[in-house]
Structure formats: structure tokens, C-alpha cells
Simulated scan of single mutants.
Amino acid sequence: MATIPLAFILLKDARLPDQEALIQSIRGRHPDLQCSRSAAVLSDGATRPMLIPVGNHTLTIFLVPEPVPSDQQLWERASRLWPEAFRAAGRHRAHLAIAVMDSAKSNAETKELGFAERTLLTTALVGAVLAATPGVVAVIWDGKVGRSPEMWLERSRSAFAAYPDQPFALWTEIVPYRSGKTIGAYTVGLSAFTGREIEFEVDGLDQDTVTARVAQLSAYFIATGLEDGLRAARCSKPIPRSIIASWCSTAIRASTSGRSSHSHPSMTDRGDAGPTRSFPPQSPGIIRC
């Protein structure tokens, strides 16, 4: 599994955030985080990163004056929750690469962050960068999940919230599909936390129910780890309906798709496409429920 999550902030124009505005954004959104001004001074056109000390770690921001490589599948997944995803991504001309690194001054008493802990801190700081940077059109989390800046600004405020209120929808995708009369769903991005993805397929359930169950399992595994989660017969706390609703994409309009009102716009139909088109992708790293 990866140890350092990476976020890309997609921009209309190539620019770094103002350092003072960023520090004020961090302090305003997360008062418990101790941050300070960086001694590094960037000249015009410099390729060095902006470094902001945050506690015993360092917020690292690289400006890349070109678009990220096109990823059709990423934006297709994102459009299930965010119908304007393709259009928004097409407007970006540069991006920021955001990561939280261990400070060079860390001593033996400084606790090294695991992936989940580093995710929480990175999520909080990405939200602060968004609030201090004009012209943001989209955010990509760990190369797999695309979300709107509005969703990131709202959800990242809860970066350090305990289960079930952590903003797991920023880190993972839930992709619904249909196989004959059976509706299922699988995750993208959960494996970064647990080493496994989830595939859930049960006859007789509608999409909202399937999506809600996968969301609940995802949040629980992120909070408890895979081994503890698998030992639990069920989650001890329900996911709040507001969070489940964010995954249930029945509200996404299909007015531009030309589909029948009986065909869900966010569903991928397995049909009889054969082994070359398997949804979800078959992998030994999938937990099948």
C-alpha cells in the first residue's frame, strides 16, 4: 500500500497560493494545527516547492504549469456524483501537487504517520489550499478519485472527524453496475487504506441500498482497518443519511444522455460483453460480499 497520499488541485491558470493567505486559511479552518511561515522564498518562475511547516510535518506544494494527463475513466467515475466533471477538468491548464512530508527536523519522539493518519492531515490541508487559491476547477485524490472543489471545501472541514463522519467520499469511489437483473457496486481507492477493494452483489436489492452498504463497509474499514472490520458481523454505527445520500446518484439528471427514465444514468451494464469487459475488474485484492 502507498504511504504518502498525493492530491492534485487543477487550476485555470498556473499560480501558487499566497503564503500568508494559506497560513490564515489553515488556522481558520483547523485551529488545532500549528503552522508557521516558511523561510523559503520563491522567485518568479521558480520550480522549487512551497513549504509550510505544520506541526512536525511539512505541507509541500509543487506548481506544475501544465495539465494532468487525461484519464477518461477517472472523470467518468467522478461524473456519477458530479455531472460537470468532464467539463470542469477540461478547463484546467495547470495543477498543484500536494503532499504532507515528514519534517527534516523530526526527532526520535516524533510519531511517523501511517497512510490513514497522513490522509487526514493531507485532506485538511488540501481544503485550506483550496480556500486560499483562486481558479480551482477540480481535485484529484491519489490519482483515482475526482471531486469538485465545492465538495472538497465542505467535506475537508471534517477531515479529523471520527467514524462514521469522516469524509471518505473524498477518498474513494463507489461504482454501481448491473449484471442481468442483479445490481452490484465496487470501490475504487479503498485498497490504499486496506489493501483490498470491495465488490458487493446481491440479488433483490436496489441501487441505493447496494451503494449505502458499500459506503458503510468502506467507512468502517477505513476507520478500523481491514482485520477488525472483517471480524465485525455488522457496523456498530449507521452511516448518517446525509453521507449515504451523497453516494446515491439517483438525483443525477440524464437529460443529456437520451436514456429511458427506467435506465439509471450512473449504472454500468455488464451485459454479455465477455471476459474483456468485466465490471468490476477481477482481482485477488477484492473482497466479495
Score class of each variant (00 low, 15 high):
M1C: 09
A2D: 13
A2K: 15
T3F: 09
P5C: 09
L6F: 03
A7R: 10
F8G: 05
L11F: 11
K12G: 14
A14T: 06
R29D: 05
H30E: 06
Q34G: 02
R37N: 14
R37M: 13
S38E: 08
A40G: 04
V41R: 15
D44E: 13
G45M: 08
R48E: 14
L51I: 10
L51P: 03
P53S: 13
V54L: 11
N56A: 15
L59Q: 10
T60I: 02
T60W: 12
L63G: 10
L63Y: 09
L63F: 05
E66Q: 15
P67Q: 11
V68C: 10
D71P: 03
Q73N: 04
W75N: 01
E76G: 07
F86P: 00
G90C: 02
H92C: 09
R93F: 01
A94G: 08
I98R: 06
I98E: 04
D102T: 14
D102C: 07
E109P: 01
G114W: 02
G114C: 07
E117R: 09
T122G: 09
T122I: 04
L125F: 04
L130F: 02
A131N: 13
A131S: 15
A132G: 10
T133S: 14
T133N: 05
P134K: 09
P134M: 08
G135E: 10
V136R: 09
V137H: 11
I140S: 13
W141L: 01
G143A: 09
G143F: 04
G143S: 10
G143D: 08
G143N: 11
V145A: 09
R147I: 05
M151H: 10
W152Y: 09
S156I: 01
S156H: 02
S158N: 13
A161Q: 11
A162D: 15
D165S: 00
D165R: 01
Q166W: 03
A169L: 07
L170T: 07
W171E: 10
T172A: 15
E173Y: 00
I174M: 05
P176A: 05
Y177M: 07
I183L: 15
G184R: 00
A185S: 14
R196D: 07
R196Q: 13
E197Q: 06
E197S: 05
I198K: 04
E201H: 06
L205V: 02
L205Y: 06
L205Q: 11
D206W: 00
D208I: 03
T211A: 11
R213G: 02
A215K: 01
A215I: 01
F221N: 04
I222K: 01
L226Q: 09
E227Q: 13
G229Y: 07
R231G: 11
A232I: 02
R234C: 08
K237P: 00
K237R: 13
I243M: 03
C248N: 14
A251F: 04
R253S: 15
S255Q: 13
S257A: 12
G258Q: 11
G258W: 06
S261I: 12
S261Y: 08
T268H: 01
T268A: 05
D269T: 05
R270Y: 00
G274T: 11
G274A: 10
P275F: 11
T276S: 14
Q282I: 06
G285D: 15
G285C: 06
I286E: 07
I287W: 15
R288K: 14
